[in-house]
């Protein structure tokens, strides 16, 4: 399968990249690992006239801790995140999520954490070859007026299937975006539009440069995902959880963040269900089961036929993924206390 034609730039500096993005804006595409962009280009779903490669920007590949934040450069390869002891300790859910991205030995070396967050929304009816799509009317995301994922929908019902974004949103991560206009910091849970066609609230001249994860003392996190195969496939349901112990009673949850992924146009931070866990004991599995059910009910309304699996099954699995992730996160607390 040939790639469409484009001109290629690989600037040596961040300023050089930003200047090119400013000059070419919507015509530019940012190439990091290429495991998402190049596939979409081969399918003729994306056709940037100018590719701006981050090949020489090694300064965007790092993992460090600074002023209460775990900071990860956007160009950090997935494998570096998986192998980082710092991330394992401070953000275990992110390691669990990254281990599940693509295939162990392959996408991990090319794919980057920034690219995983910014992978375009997907839909089983949209992410198909040009030949496949040519057999019928284009859908909303493909420039038409039909949605194959949900009957008579007047807008796109694609889904965000990023493992990394779901785990990072649970850990209340922030993104740092740079452009020639300056730097801009945004919370990941406020980074999404509700538009499946253009899912990110980001300008075409902006580049994702850094991910900040707050380091909260005593916090535990976990990530669970369901997919057809353990490798290569995208999640059809996933859940990221972070639990912070109560300051007065370490056996109780002080605050929780429950995020359900792969069900909607963005990962869903379920604020109400999360709040209901405040004050619950870490060994209260009944409360976790109830939270799983509540999460399922909250997420179910967003579900559309966009990932192949039976809709009722995916909805039911939200409960399981959330429940399992909660139990797994809570188990880390008892392990910490035992130590």
């Amino acid at each position: 399968m040939r790639l469409p034609q484009f001109t290629y730039h690989s600037p040596d500096t961040l300023e050089g990249v930003l200047a090119l993005l400013d000059e070419h804006r919507d015509n530019a595409g940012v190439l990091a690992g290429g495991t998402d962009l190049l596939v979409r280009m081969k399918h003729r779903l994306a056709g940037p006239k100018v590719l701006v490669s981050l090949k020489h920007l090694d300064s965007l590949s790092y993992i460090k801790e600074m002023s209460g934040m775990l900071c990860i450069g956007a160009k950090t390869p997935i494998i570096d995140v998986i192998r980082s002891d710092r991330v394992k300790q401070q953000a275990p859910a992110l390691v669990q999520a990254c281990e599940r991205i693509g295939a162990v030995s392959i996408q991990h070396y090319r794919g980057t954490i920034g690219g995983n967050i910014l992978q375009d929304n997907r839909c089983i009816h949209y992410n198909q070859s040009q030949l496949h799509r040519s057999g019928r009317q284009p859908c909303h995301k493909d420039g038409g007026k039909i949605c194959y994922a949900r009957d008579e929908a007047d807008r796109c019902n694609s889904t965000c299937q990023s493992d990394g974004a779901t785990a990072l949103m649970a850990m209340d991560a922030h993104l740092v975006l740079n452009s020639t206009r300056g730097e801009h910091r945004v919370a990941l849970d406020g980074f999404y539009t509700t538009d499946g066609i253009h899912p990110f609230d980001m300008q075409p001249d902006e580049l994702l440069t850094k991910i900040d994860i707050p380091v909260v003392p005593g916090a535990v996190s976990a990530y669970q995902r369901l997919s057809y195969r353990s490798a290569i496939d995208y999640p059809i349901v996933c859940a990221g959880i972070r639990l912070v112990p109560d300051q007065k009673d370490a056996g109780c949850i002080g605050s929780a963040r429950i995020v359900v992924g792969a069900m909607s146009r963005s990962p869903l931070f379920l604020a109400k269900v999360s709040q209901s866990l405040a004050g619950v004991r870490f060994d209260d599995n009944t409360a976790f089961d109830r939270a799983g059910k509540d999460a399922m009910n909250a997420a179910a309304t967003f579900a559309a036929h966009n990932a192949g699996a039976d809709l009722a099954f995916r909805q039911a699995m939200v409960e399981k993924m959330v429940g399992r992730a909660l139990e797994q996160a809570a188990a880390q607390v008892s392990m910490k206390i035992a130590r």
């Binding site: 399968m1 690989s10 290429g34 596939v39 693509g102 392959i106 996408q107 070396y109 090319r110």
Partner: peptide, 25 residues
């Protein structure tokens, strides 16, 4: 499109999909 792995080559010591790696990269 990076799914099957039959194009895997070793690039600077790591296995990568040659079909999803630009020659220029």
């Amino acid at each position: 499109e990076g799914v099957c792995g039959s194009c895997t080559v070793i690039l600077d010591g790591h296995p990568v999909r040659a079909c999803l790696t630009l020659a220029l990269e």
